[in-house]
């Protein structure tokens, strides 16, 4: 069975300043598969953010190819890239960035507003289902300021899953959480991979290695599989 979801071929990213050309990502060749949790580790300045931006279609590589479902989606225009993001990619960030004036369920609905395949009734159903899945059904009508950090992050994850994406990209998702909440979040992410999603987590936490199927190390712009 072909589990290949993302394939990066000879992917490079350079930043040019007046005096020099910085090669942030160097010839990356890698295949990300469905149903796996990838933990990307690397020192500051190793190119993690750049890689995430490219994987999340928020930046284009300088050269090389990006394949999604065996289709090249390198250098898409904003409108197409946004559509791919909406359908296939869910983002989780360190800061939860929930809209403070929207209730928990309304925050989850935000990504679905632009999804023409989901009607208004279904939006509420999906939001309620996600809230239940994350054990937050009783918090549906609470505003973010009335929720704990862990609860806010779970709402943010639910929001990332609203359009049922194939890929989840999490950038330091537990950076603002205590150890207990960190475990809960990692368990959720592991569970998502178990359900067939491709979960890519960038984290400084050693805890992630316990949950990751594959550990990746990004060092000086080179991506290699590390030891679990």
């Amino acid at each position: 069975m072909n589990n290949k979801l993302i394939e990066l071929k000879y992917l490079k990213k350079n930043y040019e300043t007046i005096n020099e050309k910085i090669e942030v990502l160097k010839n990356i060749n890698y295949v990300f598969e469905k149903g796996k949790l990838y933990a990307i580790k690397g020192h500051s300045g190793s190119g993690k953010t750049t890689l995430i931006k490219i994987l999340g279609l928020m930046d284009n590589p300088s050269s090389g190819e990006y394949y999604l479902f065996d289709k090249s989606i390198t250098n898409l225009k904003d409108k197409e890239a946004s559509l791919y993001r909406m359908k296939h990619i869910g983002f989780i960030f360190q800061d939860y960035n929930l809209n403070p004036y929207l209730k928990a369920s309304e925050n989850i609905i935000v990504p679905m507003i632009i999804n023409k395949e989901i009607n208004k009734t279904d939006r509420n159903k999906i939001a309620n289902k996600l809230l239940k899945e994350f054990g937050l059904e009783e918090r549906a009508n609470h505003f973010p300021k009335e929720l704990s950090g862990g609860e806010q992050q779970r709402i943010a994850i639910a929001r990332a899953l609203a359009n049922d994406p194939d890929i989840i990209i999490a950038d330091e998702p537990t950076g603002n959480l205590d150890a207990e909440n960190e475990k809960i979040i990692f368990k959720f992410l592991k569970n998502l991979a178990y359900k067939g999603k491709c979960v890519i987590v960038v984290s400084h936490s050693e805890e992630i290695l316990e949950y990751a199927d594959i550990s990746l190390i990004l060092e000086n712009g080179i991506l290699t599989e590390g030891q679990r």
Binding site: G56, M58, D78, K79, A81, S82, L83, Y84, R85, M86, K87, I89, F91, F93, D95, N97, N99, V110, P111, I114, N115, R159, A160, A162, N163
Partner: peptide, 16 residues
């Protein structure tokens, strides 16, 4: 600004 970034990440294009 950050929330707009979230919207972009959620798939909103610039026009949206």
């Amino acid at each position: 600004a950050k929330y707009m970034g979230i919207l972009r990440a959620c798939g909103y294009n610039k026009k949206q």
